[in-house]
Design a protein around this nucleic acid. Structure first.
Length: 928
RNA sequence: GCCCCGGUGGUGGAAUUGGUAGACACGCAGGACUUAAAAUCCUGUGUCUUCGCGGACGUACGGGUUCAAGUCCCGUCUGGGGUACCA
């Protein structure tokens, strides 16, 4: 019987679906194991071969863990809100819901064809009202919470209100807006409802606040930092500018320290943890106030180098700093105003492009040095950012390169206070050296000087030791249609959250998916009929893409729950994700937000885990391998790659699906596009050889390879094996079908073990399987393979395990082994990788149960040892000769045997070795 | 600039704790079977040298530690990813 993969694969896919073979059970005696993939956004282009890479890896682990006796949760769903469907809707008028559903259907069909063991009963879609009801519910919990720094967790806003009613806010230790002012109990009680609401807004973890946002006029929406690439929007490539807007935001900064310390408990790669650490950007230093000369006002700065305080030669404010106007003297007014308005109009992109251009302006005012009382000029410079620290810096040009260039450019003084650099050439930024010209800090090392300076600043009440984070609050509102409506309505200009039984707040229908003519979000188009209790306007912005994906891992635990995010008992049972696989592009976006929401939900007691995923692996990207043809300019002639030098040619992308091993199928090429139907070719060795380049996989480059085509030609088992065989999971690599015959040949060889009497014998119609006892050699091959595969899967080294399967099958083929006792355990080992063929052969062997229900075989060390092992013996590392010794010896016995050996004695020539080292039971070294 | 990860045959890659570098696969060459092709099977395949046995060299480059280095340390070159006037 031939290996008919098409029939086998469709039969088993139908069987698994019908029998719900991979449905996870909520509970039981088995230990649980939760394997999660980052769910896809269902785009219109369908899956290409790069998408399933991570899914195949997670599927292998899931199937393996089931064999190992775990109760495995391995779900899949769709991150189905997003901009592309909305853009498509704008262009065509088709409702994004329809587009999304169509795309999901295509994805599902493609995923099913690969034979994944997902539990589809738990499918989630973020755009489903039954799902986003709970996204909205979580938003309301966050809105109704504040962060208590004393208990170091989020609490319901009611505890804050009662504190206000007892003590006012002077004792409150909260993560809140810096600008919040002190009030007493009686003041609180005298405030109007609107005033109270505004005050609480400063404390809420989801709050409405003024924020500089990345505004994209073309899209009519606000973008997150990671939705912008090179200063333009990731989708569409439109310019982006900074704009101050009232926006819903999330106070993720309250969690900065916990997000940082939590990383230590995670089994994530160092590079990923490092990326998160950099993003959170903790820096320790001190605040320091400079008194403005001739005024009672002070400018507060943040510095990590208080040791260099005697080197301050000017203070720089961000152009947006609130004191700019007051500090500007009349004679400088024109220059300052011109500079400020110009700096404000510069977009982020322009600022980045002019990174080396130094700009700034003098205000005309001075501050007093806190220790020396010396007059220090106040400047404005756009290298100081309003959004970081206090928006003002003490400039120490001698020891900070940015201050240095600024000082050099404007001719300001440079005062050396740490020895070690050459200030004629550049600033000395290193945090080591001895302090000079610094009064009480003189002679100290930088490290000690920092400590002493902070101490002194605190004693003199000039400032306070402080920790600053780079992390900023996350803007949560989007001026878009295709997202979760924010469950807020406005009554007398006060925002109120909906209550649970008013959810879900369904996304209303609109006539167009664009912002309104006066710049309101698309939802404003529905406003006339879409009102709370028929009269109050709802919030018109929607949630960002990351909202739905920040808690989906919980929903899979109880995907159809109508009364909560998921049943508490089930969340307590499934706990954390044990293995999370996805792309590294989510390192600082999704993975921070999902950690943030997890911590928040824990604080409120809804879940009892602090981190969403224990182990995380980033799969590498599969790049496209583009093929080129070279058209001789002005003709319809195409010259082969090797001969193109003599011609004036234009390189054109050609469809990789009509190219085999870089040889063009010229007839298919002529049919591919009408204008090529009359093409002529200049061949080399009778072939047309194409050029090659590695690029991102994309429709426009004609280098997209669909998994469907591969499955059609070779079968899904081959696709699965080949994607894993390409190289280490975490490494990026170009797709190249050249080697696929290797893994396909492996499956055919495996099939022959069951249906043929030998390597070159013809295939039989019947299984040729014997019940004979295996030989020692066959058992050794089997157990060696089990051992290696087990170790390979445990360390996620799927490419090497496939090599080990190949070695095993080659050895069994050589041994003409067709014994049940060898082949059955081998099938079980292979089934996570190639589920269809192994299910089929398992059934042919007479089993009624799915192979996925069988225990993974254990290996037996006893079968692995050789009778004799060659021990090369070397003296001082030089290999001299080998001895044959039985492998049953202990290391001590090997030593004795080697020492007593005649040849060893001859080599040592009467000397006694100082050291005898037996390594790997294979090499014996002697140090003389 | 800073941070992180890499650099091994013609190609993808293996070498798990420092212990016989190049497993496995592709490609290529030769052979078997076949009228022929496909499929399948067998042999060879790091470089140089040698008729051959063998020998020398060899993991980006230059040093170092070690009986022993692809692996550890220092420096240089180089590729990829992240991030950026973060005070």
């Amino acid at each position: 019987m031939e290996y008919n993969f098409k029939e086998i694969e469709s039969n088993w896919q139908a069987y698994w679906a019908k029998n719900k073979t991979f449905a996870a059970k909520d509970g039981g005696d088995k230990p649980k194991y939760y394997v999660l993939d980052m769910f896809p956004y269902p785009s219109g282009a369908g899956l290409h071969v790069g998408h399933p890479l991570g899914y195949i890896a997670s599927d292998i682990v899931s199937r393996y863990k089931r064999h190992k006796g775990f109760n495995v949760l391995h779900p899949m769903g769709y991150d189905s809100f997003g901009l592309p469907a909305e853009q498509y809707a704008i262009q065509t008028g088709q409702h994004p819901k329809i587009t999304t559903e169509n795309n999901i259907a295509v994805y599902r069909r493609q995923l099913d064809k690969i034979g994944f063991s997902f539990d589809w009963d738990r499918e989630v879609r973020t755009s489903d009202p039954e799902y986003y009801k709970w996204t909205q519910w979580i938003f309301i919990q966050i809105f109704n919470s504040w962060y208590n720094k004393t208990t170091d967790k989020a609490e319901n806003i009611s505890s804050l209100i009662s504190e206000f009613e007892i003590n006012g806010n002077k004792k409150v230790n909260a993560s809140c807006e810096e600008s919040v002012r002190l009030f007493t109990v009686s003041e609180w009680k005298s405030f109007s409802e609107k005033e109270q609401s505004d005050i609480l807004m400063n404390y809420r973890l989801a709050y409405l606040g003024e924020a500089y946002v990345n505004w994209c006029p073309q899209l009519g929406t606000v973008l997150a930092n990671d939705e912008i690439k090179d200063g333009v929007s990731e989708r569409g490539g439109y310019p982006v500018e900074r704009k101050l807007m009232k926006q819903w935001s999330m106070r993720i900064t309250a969690y900065a320290q916990r997000l940082l310390t939590g990383l230590d408990t995670l089994d994530w790669t160092d590079s990923l943890k490092e990326a998160q650490r950099n993003w959170i950007g903790k820096s320790e230093g001190t605040s320091l106030r400079f008194k403005i000369a001739g005024s009672d006002k002070r400018i507060e700065v943040f510095t990590t180098r208080p040791d260099t305080v005697f080197g301050v030669s000017f203070v720089t404010l961000a152009p947006e700093h609130e004191l700019v106007e007051k500090l500007t003297t009349p004679e400088n007014k024109t220059a300052v105003e011109a500079y400020v308005s110009q700096a404000k109009n510069r977009s982020e992109r322009e600022r980045q492009a002019d990174i080396n251009k130094i700009t700034g302006v003098f205000t005309g005012s001075y501050v007093e040095h806190p220790f020396t009382g010396k007059q220090i000029p106040i400047w404005i410079g756009d290298y100081v950012l309003a959004g970081y620290g206090t928006g003002a810096v003490m400039a120490v040009p001698a020891h900070d390169s940015r201050d240095y260039s600024f000082a050099k450019y404007f001719g300001l003084s440079i005062l050396e206070v740490v020895k070690g650099g050459d200030l004629e050439k550049e600033s000395y930024d290193a945090k080591e050296g001895v302090l000079i010209n610094s009064d009480f800090l003189n002679g100290l090392q930088v490290k000690d000087a920092v400590k002493l300076a902070i101490q002194e600043i605190e004693i003199r009440q000039l400032g306070k030791g402080k920790v600053n984070f780079r992390l900023r609050d996350a803007v949560f509102g989007r001026q878009r249609y295709w997202g979760e409506p924010i469950p807020i309505y406005y009554k007398n200009d006060i925002p109120y959250a909906l209550i649970e039984n008013e959810l879900p707040l369904i996304l209303p229908e609109v006539d167009k998916y664009l912002p309104t003519e006066d710049g309101e979000p698309p939802l404003a188009r529905a406003a006339s009929s879409w009102k709370h209790e028929g009269k109050y306007d709802y919030e018109h912005s929607t949630m960002p893409g990351w909202a739905g994906s920040s808690w989906y891992f919980l929903r899979y635990m109880d995907a159809n729950n109508a009364s909560g995010i998921a049943d508490k008992k089930l969340m307590d049972y499934w706990q954390q994700v044990d293995l999370y696989i996805g792309g590294s592009e989510h390192a600082t976006g999704h993975l921070l937000y999902v950690r943030f929401w997890t911590k928040f939900l824990k604080d409120l007691g809804y879940i009892n885990i602090e981190e969403p995923a224990k182990k995380l692996i980033n799969q590498g990207m599969i790049q496209g391998r583009s093929n080129f043809v070279y058209r001789v300019n002005g003709t319809n002639k195409f010259v082969s790659n090797g001969l193109k030098k003599g011609y004036d040619v234009t390189a054109l992308h050609t469809d990789v699906n009509i190219v085999d091993n870089d040889i063009l199928d010229v007839n298919a090429f002529k049919k591919w596009r009408e204008d090529f139907s009359t093409a002529e070719f200049i061949l080399e060795d009778g072939k047309y050889v194409c050029g090659v380049e590695i690029e991102k996989m994309s429709k426009s480059k004609y280098n997209v390879v669909s998994p469907d085509d591969i499955a059609e030609k070779f079968g899904s088992d081959t696709l699965r094996l080949y994607e894993m065989f390409l190289g280490p999971l975490e490494q990026s690599k170009p797709w190249n079908t050249n080697g696929i015959t290797g893994v396909h040949g492996f499956l055919k060889k495996l099939w022959r073990l069951f249906y043929s009497a030998g390597a070159s014998a013809p295939l039989s119609d019947q299984l040729i399987i014997s019940n004979d006892e295996p030989t020692k050699g066959e058992l050794k091959t089997l157990h060696k393979t089990i051992k290696k595969i087990t170790e390979d899967i445990e360390r996620f080294s799927f490419n090497t395990s496939i090599s080990n399967f190949m070695i095993c099958v080659n050895e069994l083929t050589d041994a003409k082994c067709n014994k049940r006792a060898v082949l059955e355990p081998l099938l079980i080992c292979l089934s996570p990788y190639a589920p269809h063929i192994t299910e089929e052969l398992w059934k042919q062997l007479g089993h009624n149960e799915s192979i996925s229900t069988v225990s993974f075989p254990d290996f037996n060390e006893a079968y692995l040892v050789d009778d004799n092992i060659n021990y090369p013996v070397s003296v001082n590392g030089k290999l001299k000769f080998t001895l044959e010794l039985p492998s049953t010896l202990t290391i001590q016995e090997v030593e004795t045997e080697v020492m007593n050996n005649e040849q060893t004695q001859k080599l040592l020539d009467g000397k006694q070795p100082k050291k005898v080292i037996v390594v790997h039971k294979k090499i014996v070294n002697m140090v003389v």
